[in-house]
Design a protein around this nucleic acid. Structure first.
Length: 197
DNA sequence: CGTACGATCTGCT
DNA sequence: GCAGATCGTACGA
């Protein structure tokens, strides 16, 4: 197992990290149960100059303050009152960069993930969406601020699962309010046709 | 304190 | 394709 080291998260190019995380494996160990998925979709949130970011304009609130932490921790928050969304905080302390994990392909503990999502049968398209990812991996608000180099949530590099040339990019989702920044190609994903593990 | 709304999902049509 | 669910968070009074 090759857990990504702290130095990985301290890199300053959040766009590069967002693309690079596609194909890596997000793992959680909750109550001694390991579940994991291959990351298939991400979005970069580029700090204080990004209108779509919670930290736009240097805003600091109780909710988003963890984004200003040194990279390598989780930013988990609630959206639409129902869903937890999981982000990877990157860059050095004081720079609020983050990568939203929007989709995974089940890897380890598939049965448990299906159970957590109240599904009875498996399909590769059942884990495409940030709220579904956190539900399957049981990531919750208590994990906000948790270290990604610890023993509960981490990301592994298990080698080449996805050809970097097969990673697509385009505008982010659900951020129409972000004006011109809504068009930036900060979303990265793999074509489902390329998923054939 | 009150109000408006959101980095979404699901089920029904 | 669309509306409803459902509530924490931000922000103004």
């Amino acid at each position: 197992m090759a857990k990504l080291p702290l130095t990985y998260y301290l890199q300053n190019d959040v766009i590069f990290i967002a693309k690079d995380l596609v194909g890596k494996v997000l793992v959680t160990k909750i109550d001694d149960n390991i579940t994991s998925g291959i990351i298939t979709e991400t979005e970069a949130y580029n700090g204080i100059v990004d209108r779509a970011s919670h930290a736009y304009g240097g805003k600091i609130t109780n909710r988003n303050k963890i984004m200003y932490h040194k990279g390598g921790v989780a930013y988990v928050y609630i959206c639409y009152g129902i869903h937890f969304l999981f982000n990877v905080v990157t860059n050095i302390e004081g720079i609020p960069h983050a990568v939203l994990i929007r989709g995974i392909y089940p890897y380890q503990g598939i049965d448990l993930m299906l159970k957590r999502r109240n599904l009875i049968s498996f399909s590769k398209h059942l884990f495409n969406g940030p709220g579904k990812v956190t539900k399957a991996l049981k990531i919750e608000k208590i994990h906000n601020g948790i270290s990604l180099t610890g023993e509960k949530i981490w990301i592994e590099d298990v080698g080449k699962l996805i050809n970097p040339q097969k990673i697509l990019s385009g505008p982010r989702i659900g951020i129409e309010y972000a004006k011109e920044d809504a068009l930036l190609p900060y979303r990265f994903w793999v074509d489902p046709k390329e998923i054939n593990f």
